[in-house]
Deep mutational scan, measured.
Amino acid sequence: MTLTLTVPPGAKVRVRITNENGETTEIEVEPGETVTITLPAGSTVRVEVEVVDPDGRKRTETFTLKP
């Protein structure tokens, strides 16, 4: 399973991925970048995406991906 994120110009994104064992991976994606994350097959993962807009506003979306 893959997750692809494209960050709009001016925004910053931090992604936290937590697996079933509670292990967390965190990455930051710079403005204008596209990143593809390969998620472990057969695992349920929690993905938290934090977006910081150019004006400093933050918003966070959290979702769970199941196999």
Rank of each mutant, 00 (worst) to 15 (best):
T44D: 04
D53T: 10
T6P: 13
G42C: 15
P67W: 15
V52H: 02
T44N: 03
K58Y: 02
I17K: 07
G56E: 00
V47L: 02
L39A: 13
L3Q: 01
K58E: 00
D53N: 01
E48C: 04
T64K: 01
G32C: 10
L5M: 12
T6M: 12
T62Q: 03
T25E: 07
T2D: 02
P40N: 12
G22D: 12
R16P: 00
V13F: 02
R57I: 04
T6S: 07
E26G: 07
T64D: 12
L3P: 08
T34V: 14
E26T: 05
V51K: 01
V29D: 15
R46A: 02
V29Q: 13
T6K: 08
K66F: 15
R59I: 06
E30T: 12
T18S: 08
T38I: 06
R57W: 02
T44C: 14
K12D: 11
E23Y: 10
T24N: 06
V51F: 11
E28M: 03
M1E: 02
V49R: 01
R57C: 07
E20G: 05
V7K: 03
E50W: 01
E48W: 04
I37W: 14
G42T: 14
T44G: 03
I17P: 02
F63Y: 05
D55W: 10
N19L: 07
E30S: 05
E48R: 03
P31N: 10
P54Y: 04
D55Q: 03
E33I: 10
L39Y: 09
L65A: 01
E20I: 05
R59H: 11
V45M: 04
K66G: 15
N21E: 06
T36L: 14
V45W: 14
V29A: 04
T18H: 11
E33P: 11
T64E: 15
E20L: 07
R14N: 06
T38V: 08
K58W: 02
E61T: 15
A11Q: 01
E33D: 10
P40F: 14
L3Y: 07
E28Q: 11
K58G: 01
G32W: 14
T60M: 03
E30V: 13
R16G: 05
G42H: 11
P67D: 08
G32K: 13
R57K: 09
F63Q: 12
A41L: 11
N21T: 06
V15F: 05
E28R: 06
T44V: 07
V29C: 09
P9S: 07
A11T: 03
V29W: 14
G42Y: 11
E50A: 01
E23Q: 07
T25G: 06
G42F: 12
T18C: 10
E28S: 08
T60A: 00
T38L: 11
G56R: 00
A41H: 08
T62A: 03
T60G: 00
V15L: 09
T24A: 11
L39R: 06
R16I: 03
F63M: 04
V35W: 14
V35Y: 14
V29E: 14
T38D: 07
K12N: 10
K12G: 05
R57E: 02
L5H: 02
M1Y: 13
T25M: 10
V29F: 11
T34N: 11
T4E: 05
V35S: 08
V7N: 02
V51Y: 14
V51C: 04
T62L: 02
R57N: 08
E28W: 03
T25L: 12
A11N: 02
G42E: 10
F63I: 15
F63G: 15
R57V: 07
G22Q: 09
F63D: 15
G42K: 08
P31E: 06
V45S: 03
T2W: 15
M1A: 04
F63A: 13
V29N: 14
M1F: 14
V7R: 04
E33G: 12
T18N: 09
P9G: 07
E20P: 05
G22V: 09
T4A: 09
V35I: 06
L3T: 03
T44Y: 12
E48G: 01
T24F: 07
T18L: 09
N19E: 09
P31V: 14
I17C: 11
L39C: 13
E33N: 06
T25N: 04
T34M: 11
D53R: 01
E23I: 09
V45K: 02
V47P: 00
T6G: 13
T4W: 14
P67T: 14
V15M: 12
T34C: 14
I17S: 11
L65K: 00
E26Q: 06
E23G: 08
E26M: 04
R16Q: 03
A11L: 00
G22F: 08
V52N: 02
R46W: 06
T36C: 14
K12T: 11
E26A: 06
V29G: 04
G32A: 13
V13E: 01
R16E: 03
T4N: 04
T4I: 11
V29L: 08
R46D: 03
G10M: 11
T64G: 00
I37G: 09
R59E: 01
D53E: 04
P31C: 14
V45A: 06
E61Y: 15
G22W: 10
E50C: 03
T25V: 13
E50H: 03
V35C: 06
N21C: 13
N19H: 05
G22R: 07
R16S: 04
E28I: 02
D53V: 00
R57L: 03
I17F: 14
V7Q: 03
P9Y: 08
P8K: 11
V7Y: 15
P9I: 08
E23K: 07
T36A: 08
T62V: 13
L65P: 03
T18D: 08
I37L: 10
A11P: 01
S43E: 15
G32Q: 13
T4M: 11
E26D: 06
V35P: 08
K12P: 02
T60S: 02
T34G: 10
L39D: 06
T44P: 10
T38G: 09
V45L: 13
T24H: 08
G22M: 10
V29H: 08
A41N: 09
I27S: 10
L3S: 02
V35Q: 03
V7P: 01
T44F: 13
V29P: 13
K58C: 05
L65M: 14
T6C: 15
D55M: 03
P8R: 11
T25K: 08
K58I: 13
V47M: 02
S43H: 09
E30G: 03
V52W: 07
T18W: 13
A11C: 03
E20H: 07
V29K: 09
K12V: 07
R14A: 11
R46N: 04
P40E: 12
E23N: 09
T36D: 08
G32P: 12
E20F: 07
G56T: 00
R57Y: 03
V49C: 04
N21P: 12
I37A: 13
E50L: 01
R57G: 02
E61G: 01
L5P: 01
P54A: 10
P9W: 11
R16D: 03
K66T: 15
G42D: 11
E50Y: 01
V52D: 01
T24Q: 09
V29Y: 09
T6N: 10
P8T: 13
E30K: 10
E48M: 04
